[in-house]
Every structure is written in structure tokens, then in C-alpha cells.
Design a protein around this nucleic acid. Sequence first.
DNA 1: GTGAAAGCGCTAACAG
DNA 2: CTGTTAGCGCTTTCAC
Lengths: 354, 354
Amino acid sequence: MSGDAEADQGAGEARRMHRPTMGDVAEAAGVSRPLVSIVMRDAKGASEATRQRVLKVAAELGYVPDDRARKLRQKSSRLIGVAFWLQHPFHGDVVEQLYLAAAEQGYDLALSAVAPTRDESTAIESLIRERCEALIVLSLKEEAKHLQTVSKRVPVISVARRLKESTVGVVRGDDRAGLRMAVEHLASLGHTRIAHIDGARVPGSVERRSSYRKTMQRLRFDEHIDVVLGGPTEEDGARGMAELLSRSVRPTAVIGFNDRCAAGALDYAIRAGLSVPQDISIMGYDDSRLSRRTHVQMSTISQDTQTQAHQAVRLAIEQVNGMPAREVIVQPQLVARETTAAPPDSAAEISRRS
Amino acid sequence: MSGDAEADQGAGEARRMHRPTMGDVAEAAGVSRPLVSIVMRDAKGASEATRQRVLKVAAELGYVPDDRARKLRQKSSRLIGVAFWLQHPFHGDVVEQLYLAAAEQGYDLALSAVAPTRDESTAIESLIRERCEALIVLSLKEEAKHLQTVSKRVPVISVARRLKESTVGVVRGDDRAGLRMAVEHLASLGHTRIAHIDGARVPGSVERRSSYRKTMQRLRFDEHIDVVLGGPTEEDGARGMAELLSRSVRPTAVIGFNDRCAAGALDYAIRAGLSVPQDISIMGYDDSRLSRRTHVQMSTISQDTQTQAHQAVRLAIEQVNGMPAREVIVQPQLVARETTAAPPDSAAEISRRS
DNA sequence: GTGAAAGCGCTAACAG
DNA sequence: CTGTTAGCGCTTTCAC
């Protein structure tokens, strides 16, 4: 089960390379510590000659500044903590953007993962111990109470989850607008029998459900309103689709709560022998990589992760500077790809619409 | 696009709560700093009475020890850095297990993500600045050279990627054994026409491909050996399946390079009107959450992320203690679920085998 | 069992 | 432009 590789490096005792310290560099370069500090930070206050010499010596010694010590000394750590779910495509997208957004503001990120065996409070706790100046929490569960408590200790920004707590900053997509766009997109293609597989108790599902209903009513599709119980996973979507396909009159289009849900629904429909989008149109929500992943590109609603990430960082810094928490709502965008098209009997439907 | 929430907390100036320090707790509890330290670390050297009092005061003040300062002072940081890909289910699984494994050894984890806009060297660089004692790198790209350089500075463990560099520790699944198990599983169900959609240039694909061939030969299925170009994504799998289905004589079973590849193949087969596993059996590799995600549970080869994570942490600590880098190979395991069954003409096939 | 003193690696204030 | 002094928050001797 295991075997040694050829070991050509120093054997036995801990001969771990003593990492050079700033003092070592200073000594080797024949200057004082603060000067090395100045050079390493690229601050002004050192002559070009010294700068070059110090840089050269540092490189030779393989010196790397110690972020820990640096942040300890500085009054502010310029560190933003991020709690996110491993295994969640949307979170992955946001985290990637957060790195970019934070860097633009001169902040570093400290990541702390949430997973089935690692709960949200553990993740947050570790970020606090690392002395993050603010926390950005990408969450799924509704431990709002806990977040509120934490927010009294350190600024907290919740992404993609609405919260009543006024001490917690919120960045979220406009779920109502998003679902409205989805329904309208399908309607414009000629659909009237548009169903929705909802997100059950997941944050955001109430808004999406209600916006779906309202939009259907506004379009005078009242009689076709059809919401089935779903959830955030592929399995939920498949279950929802199973239920929809058992209807005596099937919908011609289905909007899933999110991409994973829609992917499950898509999966189920195809296994049931339907063609997508010829027989039935399907839409997701999030525009996570997942929607581009299957070899049929899924139509979806983009949550604009880039903007959400930038706004989250912005709110975080605001709150660090003592400004009150606020809520920022980011407009979603329609991304029409290959899983939506006119319904089978499109002519008839279109005539009914006008 | 944005609006203020009701702001009931302190307005204007930075009134960020001054985080209590150990000194504050000591003063409030009427003891010295070191004693508070002892109590917070749960070390021995404090009477039960003091311990309780300090704990009570600390809780009241909302004191949280500063990990940064702590690790700075301690000779060893007891920190393991992890570079992983956001958006990669298998990596997510491993990271989750790494948290568990590291905690068992009294180590903390520092996460640094790799993504399209954030390359591996950036991720690694940041971990080094944080003074991690060792680095665990879950990688996809083959920047072996760079890893070797880094490994001269700090112990590096590569997970799921073979490396010749003897200064880098390696933990990986036994790809040859895994593919052998897959072929044998299908053979035992009665298949002979077993095809393989490979991983192209992805680490591990050479071993899997060659093991597939060898096992097929050993089973006397030489004439049915069929390897098509694939890759690590759903799209690659779909492409591979398309090619396989265009054969004059189609295979009755297909082994994908990994779960994503197999999922794409599965997807394509079903769209092509085939039933799985009735018409064709499909196997994945990794046993990532993805294989359990689709509503049809996929048969696959488990890489045993738990063991790999534990071994990675173990190697990391070994190397920190000055032991030479080595390679640990973890045995994979067959996970037979719902996408594999006897071939359509099973009776005939089985008679041929014996 | 408890406290005093020192110092981890770095940067911020100052002085020269 | 450069060096000296101090101290971030904590843990580690080592006395008492």
C-alpha cells in the first residue's frame, strides 16, 4: 500500500531549512532591518542602490516576508475572511471573483470551508481567530441568529441570502427580477404552460416562487401556474420533473430553482424519452459553471457573480470603516442557451398570446 | 440597484469594537497574562478556581485568542497549507477530509484556491508567506518543475498526481489497480466489448489506459480493446461516447476516465436513445459526489479520499520532521451502483467467458 | 500555582 | 536616506 521513493535528500534529523528572517537579510546586505522592510514593501525611503542590493541579497537567501508577523504589527490586518461551501459551483465562482475584488482593494482573503463535516460556526470561528477585519459568508443554511451574534464582534456580509438582521450586510441577486425574466423569456418563445420546480426552504426560494406566480398572473397564464416541491440538488430537480411529467396535461417549459435542480430535471426528462428543447424547454438559475458543463448548454439566469463579489468586498470595507450595514441588490441577467426554444405547438400558443 | 437597510447601529466614525486582548482579560480577572494563556490553551498550571474565573471573564469580554500572534510566538506554526481547485468535486472531497485529518494531528489548515484567474504559483506563494510548515497540493496541471523548486523551501505533498521529483511527497490512488477492477467488474457481469474513454493528457490517464489494455489482454479480450480520446470533463466524455456509438459494432460497456467524463458519456448515450444499464453499462472513476448526484447512481471506482487525505497529512508531518519524501499509493475500491449490469445478450457472452 | 521578563518577525515613530 | 527604539498579542522560560 505504500513504498518509499528514492530518497536523495538529507536523511534523518530535522534538517528543515531555517527560513531566513528579515534580520538575516539586513545583516547579509549590511543594512538595518527597517530598511529591508522598506524595500520589501516597496515603500519609499531607500536609495535605488540600497534597494537593488537588498533585493539581490533577499533573492539569494530565498527570503520571503512573514505575512503573519506583518499583519500582527500593522494596525489593520487587511484580511477578509470568507466562509464558503466546498462542493457548491456557485460559491466557487464567487470565491474566485472575491480574490480579484479583494486584491484590487489591497486586501487578502482567508478561506474557511463549510462542508457536511464542518459547520458554519466552526468555519466562522476560525476566521475570527485569524483576526479577519470582516467576514463574507456564502451560506445555505439559515443560521441567521448566529450571524447576528457574530456581527456584533466583526463586520459580516452575507452573500446570496436575505437577512433581516440590520447589523449584517447583504449582497444578493434580485430573485424576483430573475424569475420574472425567466418566465418572460419562455413566454416570448411562445410558452404558456410554464411550471416551476421550487427551492423548498432554501434562501431565495420564497421570492422566486412568488415572483413566478405574479409574473404568470400578469401574463394571464393563471390557469397554468404549477409549482412543485423541489430543492437545491439534482435529485430534487429529478423528483420535481417526475411529478410534472405525470400531469395529465404536461407543461411545455420548466424553470428549476437553480442550475443543479434544473440539471436533474433535464436529466430526468431526457431519460423519460423527451427531447430538449424540442419537446420541453428547461431553465436553470445561477449561471454556475454547471450550466455550461453538460454538453447541452443550459439556458439560465446569471447572478452576476463578479458584481456580487465586488459589492461584498465593498460593503465589507465600508463596515470596517464604521459605516452601517446595508443591503445591495444585484440585477440578474438572462442567459439564453440551448435548452429553451419555442414549444412544440408554437403557432397555436403564439396566437393565443397576442 | 442598491439601498440602505435600516441602520440602527452606531453611525459614522469607525466605532469598530476594540477586540479585547489577553492583557484585558488578565486585568479584568485580576491575574497575570501568562495565566490567562495557560487557561485558554487548556494547559496545566492553573488552579480550578482561577481557571473558572478566567474563563468566565473571557466569555464576558468576548475574548478570542489571536491565532496569528500565537503561531508567531510558537516555534512551529502547526499550519498546513492546501492548494486546491475551486470547482473540482474531487478536490472538495479531499479538502473536507484534510480538515479532519489535520485536526487529529493538532494542525490547522490554510486554504488557497486555484482557479482560471488564479494560478497555482500564486496560490502556493501566498501559503508560503503565511508560514505554513508544509504544503499539500491538489493539482491538475503539470507544473512539476515549479513544485520541485518550492519543495526545496518547504515540504510539499502532491495529491493525485505522480511526480518523479524525489523531493516532493506523493499520495495517489493506484490507477492501474483501479482500472483493472473496473474491467474485471464488467467482465464478471458478462461483458467482453468493453471500451475506454481516456483522460488524454491528464495526470493518471497513462496508467489507466495502459492498465485497461493489459487487463483486456489478460482476459483474452484483445480484439475488443477500444480506447478513444477523452478528457476530464463532461464534454470530453460525450464526445468519446459519440465516437463509440458510431462504431459498426458497439461496445456493451464503457469506462470513463473519471466521473465527469463518464457522466458526459452517460448523458450522451441516453440522448441517443439507449437505456443504461440495459443497453450499455457505464463506469466512472473517483466516486466524487458527482457519481451519487445524478438521480441514476453511477458505478465507479472509489479513490478513498479519506485515506488519501490522512496519508497526505501524515507525509506532510513526516517531512516537517525531516524524513525524506516518499510516495504512498492508496488502493481504490469498486463501487458498483446502478449504471452497470449484464450486457443485453448476457447468456451468450457468459458462455464465451468460461 | 503564579508572576516577571524576554522575544517570535515585523513595522511605525522617531532621530540622525 | 538610514539607523535606533519600541511594541503588535501571544507563549515561553524561569523565578518565587
